[in-house]
Design a binder for these strands. Sequence first.
DNA 1: CGTCAGGTTGAGGATGATCAACGAATGTGG
DNA 2: CCACATTCGTTGATCATCCTCAACCTGACG
Lengths: 256, 256
Amino acid sequence: MAHGEALCASAAGSVPEYPLTDKLASYVNLTPEETEFLAEMHEPRRKVRRRREIIIAGRQYDHLFILCRGVVCRYKVLQDGKRQVLNLGLPGDFIGLPSSLFDVAVNSVSALTDVVLAPVPFAKLFSLFARFPRLGTALFWSSAREAALYGERLVDLGRRSAYERLAHLILELLIRLRAAGLGDDNSYALPLTQELMADVLGLSGPHVNRMIRTLRDEGLATIEGQRVIIHDLPALSALAGFDERYLTRRPIPGLI
Amino acid sequence: MAHGEALCASAAGSVPEYPLTDKLASYVNLTPEETEFLAEMHEPRRKVRRRREIIIAGRQYDHLFILCRGVVCRYKVLQDGKRQVLNLGLPGDFIGLPSSLFDVAVNSVSALTDVVLAPVPFAKLFSLFARFPRLGTALFWSSAREAALYGERLVDLGRRSAYERLAHLILELLIRLRAAGLGDDNSYALPLTQELMADVLGLSGPHVNRMIRTLRDEGLATIEGQRVIIHDLPALSALAGFDERYLTRRPIPGLI
DNA sequence: CGTCAGGTTGAGGATGATCAACGAATGTGG
DNA sequence: CCACATTCGTTGATCATCCTCAACCTGACG
């Protein structure tokens, strides 16, 4: 039991031990063999400390990671030093998609909290597709659905005001963290500085700060320390134009 | 031979008949059986006319489509009528990812040119994973890599100026269209109105118009009618911070 | 020949960036 | 245990980018 427990403090119960298994189980009923194979994939585990880089753009990789615990961000830094966060990885997510699938990693990934990772060599992934087609299908299904997250983020950056963007991000994280077994009904531990939130939302740090103040002044939500508390979920959802259906997992229809 | 042929006029030679096969062939060496299965997946074909909706947000679908010919866009419309284009589909792309993988489609897709589609019921997709694991792997690999496209678009919207965004889009389309067998070394037919480009780039129509003018005034590129001509590729790339490595396909390393 | 989609141009204004300074909190080493 | 450094948060003033609205133009097509 090392550090990084702060995040988990918000979990209702215990932290899932095999988060990828949990995720895929919401798409297919797993056989014992499949469950065991997935459990194996979660080992061995490696710890990485907060702020450490997990994947570095420009280097070559022959594996992914399963994020077992903690939160990471994938990002790109431009010539002039500007940074854009491309997504946030939560437990159960594959780290290295798509960065590691290229000749040379196209993005970097760094740990926002202390994290626990399980390396998955490409070879292991290939054997999953060869030996457990239903798992392969579920993996395909699951990662294809993640494009919906990018879609909503694109809408944020392209067509929503700063205020709406912030509201939308807060709500997305509420749902996603809950699905990962973290956070409760209307609050969660947020492992993001305002600077990071700015880089997620395509804004400047000071402006994020002002929008957070506005949210508080309007009685919609507060963000203090590393904790988000949502005071008026309906109003916040209306403001953000938030529809959580792009986040809710259901069994794959028709998969025998 | 109806309309919409303008696009194909730009193709160097003939239009690929099985574009998805071509795409996957750049990731794995295909066996005759795999090639045949993929060819089957390209049938039967259905034509859809320009401006017609292919997928409508809110409806339910039990299939994807392979885009055999033409160009489509996936988009979301907000309450206030603002629209954000989420991606452009070219021949060889699956249409319905991720929209159709939800209870109810989360985005709409419409035809930008006359298009030819091959419906692929989910069941057919599942049987691909079951019978041809290498194809399944390639499909997973290919669609996971598409997240890199979203990443670059997020960088566009979040951290690049309007001028840089436009330059980046022009270059991305150059490479993608070439990979699809359309367009030549420094020009291509562009099936986008300025209004559409604005909705791709998170800008207003008039501003896109001004940026196009600036590109022309600077001697970097011209966009006239439905044709883009790039006059100074190095300068345009430098301006956009464009690195095409996120678009270049290579065989999957280590896949037996 | 009229209509309409799409393109072009201008004026004014709003959103959010930039820059700068300060404050608070956290952590580190002496 | 204290002094200091560093990170993070807060606030204000100014300014640029890009939006909005509005008008007008052009070519294609029915």
